[in-house]
Computed example of a mutant assay.
Amino acid sequence: MPNQQLSKFSSQASPEILNAMKELAQREGRKMHSILDEALSDYLVKKGVLKSKGSAMNHFAQSLNQFDALYQKLAK
């Protein structure tokens, strides 16, 4: 998870959804990709395509996304 490789893709969303995502990311101090990744993961778990990683792993992933820059500085 710490050095998880990300893949770029292109999609479209309604302005209302996109603006809500941007506001949430800003409010939580996160990047848009982490909000989108979490939303997609939750959706796929809900649909039974992915297995839930469990609450602890979700919190760990959110922590990595939110404090990535800090963790990189501490690692030096």
Rank of each mutant, 00 (worst) to 15 (best):
A13E: 09
G29D: 00
I35W: 01
A69R: 08
G54L: 02
K51V: 11
E28N: 06
E16S: 10
A56Y: 06
P2M: 10
K53T: 06
Q26N: 09
I17N: 11
S10T: 08
K47T: 11
A39P: 00
F67V: 03
S7V: 15
H33L: 04
D37L: 11
L64C: 12
S55F: 11
F9W: 07
E16G: 08
A69K: 08
Q4Y: 10
K76L: 07
H59Y: 06
D37V: 04
F9M: 05
E28T: 00
L36A: 13
A56L: 11
V45Y: 02
S52C: 02
Y71M: 15
L24E: 05
L70V: 14
F9T: 03
K22N: 10
G54C: 04
G54T: 02
E23A: 15
L70Q: 13
L40W: 01
L40R: 02
K47G: 07
H33Q: 12
G54F: 01
S63K: 07
Y43A: 12
F67D: 14
Q5K: 15
N58K: 06
M21P: 01
I35D: 00
P2D: 10
E16N: 09
K73P: 01
L74H: 09
S11M: 09
Q26A: 13
P2K: 14
G29V: 01
K53I: 06
G29R: 01
E28D: 14
L74C: 06
Q12G: 05
Q5D: 12
P15D: 08
L74S: 09
V45Q: 02
F9Q: 04
G29H: 03
I17Y: 04
L6E: 10
N19A: 10
L74T: 08
E23S: 13
Y43K: 04
S14K: 13
D37T: 15
L44P: 03
A25S: 13
L18C: 05
D37M: 08
Q62R: 14
L24R: 11
K53A: 03
A56I: 12
A13F: 13
A56H: 08
E23D: 14
L50P: 03
Y43V: 09
S7A: 15
R27A: 10
N65E: 09
K8R: 13
Q12I: 09
G48R: 06
R30V: 04
G29I: 00
G48N: 05
E23I: 09
L64V: 15
S34C: 07
L36G: 00
K76C: 04
D42W: 02
Q66S: 10
S14P: 11
L18I: 04
K53D: 02
V49N: 02
A56K: 14
R30Y: 01
S55A: 10
I35Y: 00
A20T: 10
Y43H: 10
A61N: 14
K73C: 03
F67S: 13
R30Q: 06
R30L: 13
L24W: 05
